[in-house]
Amino acid sequence: MGYVLLLLLVAIGVAVFVSSRNGKQRELERRTAELEPVKKFAFEDITALGVELQSLDGELAGHDLDAGANADYQRALDAYEAAKTAGDAIARPEDLKHVTEILEDGRYAIACVRARVAHEPLPTRRPPCFFDPRHGLSVEDVPYAPPGGATRDVPACALDAERVRAGADPDIRKVMVGAQRVPYWQGGPAYAPYASGYFGRFGVMDMMFMGMMFGGLGGFDALGDGIGALGDGIGDGLGSIGDGVGDMFDGFDGFDF
């Protein structure tokens, strides 16, 4: 009887190991699938900064830059290179925060260069446009209510602020979630670090606001995936235990108790 108990414990141990391994593999696959679209999203922002730098080069043609403008210009160039390096190193959604922090700093440096060349005061450091950070620095806060959410003041570029005041839809950056195109803030939890890098230092993305925004469509999808994975893991574990116990007792067919 002790031998039977030992084999039963071994079978349970193997089943637990297999279930854990399968669960970790599924979690890795889920995280990879979740990361890829957000990583692509960040690289689109990096490319946009590069295009803006090319445009700035054209604007600066024929202008003599003073020490301050040169320093800001170099800072913008360094931010572009640093963002590309950080983008290549993205291995998890949390890494996106570092990339967008760099991009935010680079865009502010570009705004400073333009102000210096125009002999204007340096711009106040405001968060990027909430509707699409590629629009650059916001110029004011406007009241906006995401579908199903409460009205909040969000930073907007001049064009989007004008659209909102006129009752038109702002130019919102959208992502694919399943078969739907939704605002990036409804893309799921993986987009939260992306937004945090742009807006975190300004206190725009407080916990309540992030919970409202990133707990939407994508958040419920992720929750469903997690519950499904948990159920699959439990099912695999129980199935493995049952198979192990069945195999064990099959082995006793020739014994007479």
Rank of each mutant, 00 (worst) to 15 (best):
Thr32Asn: 02
Thr32Leu: 10
Ile110Phe: 00
Tyr184Pro: 05
Gln186Met: 09
Ser19Pro: 06
Ile12Thr: 08
Gly242Leu: 13
Leu49Ala: 00
Glu34Ala: 09
Phe130Ser: 08
Thr100Val: 02
Pro146Ala: 11
Val38Cys: 05
Val117Thr: 07
Trp185Thr: 12
Phe17Ser: 09
Leu159Met: 07
Pro123Cys: 05
Ala109Phe: 01
Gly2Thr: 11
Ala229Gly: 01
Arg181Lys: 14
Val16Lys: 06
Asp57Met: 08
Ser19Gly: 15
Gly218Lys: 04
Pro128Val: 00
Ala83Gln: 01
Leu65Gln: 12
Gln186His: 14
Ala109Asn: 11
Asp225Arg: 08
Ala61Asn: 07
Gly226Asn: 11
Gly58Arg: 15
Asp221Cys: 01
Ala190Val: 05
Ala91Asp: 10
Asn70Met: 13
Pro37Trp: 04
Gly244Trp: 07
Val182Asp: 03
Ala61Ser: 14
Gly58Asn: 10
Leu49Ser: 00
Gly203Ile: 06
Gly215Asp: 01
Leu159Glu: 11
Asp64Glu: 15
Thr32Cys: 00
Tyr144Asp: 03
Asp256His: 13
Arg173Val: 04
Ala67Phe: 10
Gly246Asp: 05
Leu122Lys: 14
Asp232Tyr: 10
Leu8Gln: 07
Val16Ser: 09
Arg201Leu: 05
Ala82His: 05
Thr32Gly: 02
Glu101Thr: 14
Ala118Asn: 08
Lys84Gln: 12
Phe202Asn: 02
Gly167Glu: 01
Asp72Gln: 15
Glu29Gly: 00
Phe131Met: 06
Pro121Gln: 15
Met1Glu: 07
Val177Ile: 08
Phe249Trp: 11
Lys40Ile: 09
Leu217Val: 13
Gly203His: 08
Trp185Arg: 04
Pro128Asn: 07
Leu137Lys: 07
Gly218Val: 00
Ala156Thr: 10
Gly224Leu: 02
Lys40Gln: 13
